[in-house]
Design a protein around this nucleic acid. Structure first.
Length: 276
DNA sequence: AACGATCCCTGTTGGC
DNA sequence: TGCCAACAGGGATCGT
């Protein structure tokens, strides 16, 4: 599933092509993909003729500031793939959005489950949307150890649920939350407020190395349906995962079995020998 | 306010 | 072999 490393990999592919580019033609094929605009038809209307200033990212959201006080926002949901292709490239099933640049490149969103979206919002709309409540980016704005600990004090929810909460820190999803907690040696079921300072510090200092490793390998491609890079290649991090999806396999650190359980209504993988 | 449950959606998987 | 229910999950929303 696209999490911070996958979205960052997409961002790095898009930035050199889209930064400074003018959008010439836009098609929104699926109204659900435009649902974050009050009127989905505003997405193509607002985007055509605009120039992209830069390609930015907070958490799992891509933010592309435009001229005229507008921002182009893209989220991949769970099955969204961004393609950067020539207009002659055959169209894949579930292509719900296409934007063509004046240089003749196309940005397409392919999204079978339609959990992703494309929005074009005014500064005013952005300010009043839930996007304004997004927490600091887990890679580039991670709070220091004491500030991170303060976010957890008094919280009874499992630490994994808190790591998944994009209001606290933005970018971790189901895969990388499990990987971070394994690296930190903390049981995902532990209430956030029950962790001692060394455990809090261990989690905090595990976040960026795990995310950086994911980015270095181009993200995690689970299967054909899921995430691919904009040029169609698969990310390589799957083979590096320590716990996610490895139920029954031996822990790479202690050799004990990786177990699957459910935390916060999500599949959760851990090594009970390494994590407490 | 915090927290857990539910819903959205469709390709894939697994049980019978 | 074929069918169909269960499953996957990011984020919004709702009830407690």
């Amino acid at each position: 599933m696209p999490e911070l490393p996958e979205v960052e990999s997409v961002r790095r592919h898009l930035a050199p092509v889209l930064a400074g580019a003018r959008i010439e033609e836009v098609e929104l094929r699926h109204p659900r993909t435009g649902r974050r605009n009050l009127h989905p038809a505003d997405v193509p209307e607002r985007l055509v003729g605009r120039r992209v200033a830069s390609v930015d990212r907070t958490g799992k959201f891509l933010f592309l500031p435009l001229d005229a006080g507008l921002t182009w926002v893209v989220h991949l949901g769970m099955s969204g793939r961004v393609q950067l292709v020539a207009p002659s490239e055959p169209e894949q099933a579930h292509t719900h959005f296409i934007a063509r640049t004046e240089q003749g490149r196309e940005v397409r969103l392919v999204d079978p489950r339609t959990f992703g979206f494309v929005a074009v919002l005014t500064d005013e709309e952005l300010e009043h949307s839930s996007l304004a409540a997004l927490g600091p980016d887990a890679l580039t704005a991670l709070p220091g150890s004491s500030a991170f600990g303060a976010l957890l004090t008094g919280r009874r929810a499992p630490i994994k649920a808190l790591l998944l909460d994009q209001h606290l820190v933005a970018g971790l999803g189901n895969i990388y939350a499990d990987e971070v907690l394994h690296r930190a040696g903390v049981d995902p079921r532990r209430p956030g407020g029950s962790l001692d300072p060394p455990q809090v510090a261990a989690i905090r200092s595990a976040v960026r190395p795990v995310l950086r490793a994911g980015i270095r390998h181009g993200g995690t491609s689970l299967d054909d349906l899921a995430y691919l890079l904009p040029d169609g290649r698969a990310g390589d991090y799957l083979s590096r995962l320590q716990v996610y999806g490895r139920a029954g396999d031996p822990c790479r650190r202690c050799g004990g079995p990786i177990r699957r359980t459910v935390v916060a209504q999500r599949s959760t993988y851990l090594c009970e020998g390494c994590q407490s």
